[in-house]
């Protein structure tokens, strides 16, 4: 017997990707869209926050270095906002020093992925984070 999935499970999940590199946005978007997610993108941190309130994504993937607001500042704003305080947030960055990883996790990130990344692995990590919520 096939049990229909609940409506909430059938709905496509919306991911907000923020990175100042349009090349990186295109690659990450391709992996996530192929995995069945809807994606909205921002190239600035302040643009990401505005887009979050407009589109209400279920998960955030944030670069650390962005104009406007950096990824840590965006993350802190999300954690201070009741709408997104519990939303999964992944940091995606070329900063690989342990102190950078720790700063990201201390600010409330759920995952930290170092570039270069595999877009297929990225989609898999996003799926893991969403299943944990």
């Amino acid at each position: 017997m096939i049990v229909p999935a609940p409506a909430a499970a059938r709905a496509r999940r919306l991911i907000l990707l923020a990175d100042d590199s349009t090349t990186t946005l295109a690659i990450a978007s391709a992996g996530l869209e192929q995995a069945g997610y809807d994606v909205v993108t921002a190239t600035r941190g302040d643009e990401a926050l505005a887009l979050a309130h407009e589109r209400r994504p279920q998960l955030f993937v944030l670069d650390l270095e962005m104009p406007g607001l950096d990824g840590i500042e965006v993350l802190r704003s999300l954690r201070a906002d009741p709408l997104f305080a519990q939303a999964p947030v992944m940091l995606l960055t070329s900063h690989m020093a342990q102190r950078d990883v720790q700063a990201g996790l201390d600010a409330g990130a759920d995952a930290y992925v170092v570039k270069p990344f595999s877009p297929l692995d990225l989609a898999s990590r996003v799926g893991d984070l969403l299943r944990c919520r």
């Binding site: 090349t23 070329s94 270069p116």
Partner: peptide, 12 residues
Amino acid sequence: AHNVRGSAGQLG
């Protein structure tokens, strides 16, 4: 340079 490093790495 940081920005270019990230995208260059993504294209191999």
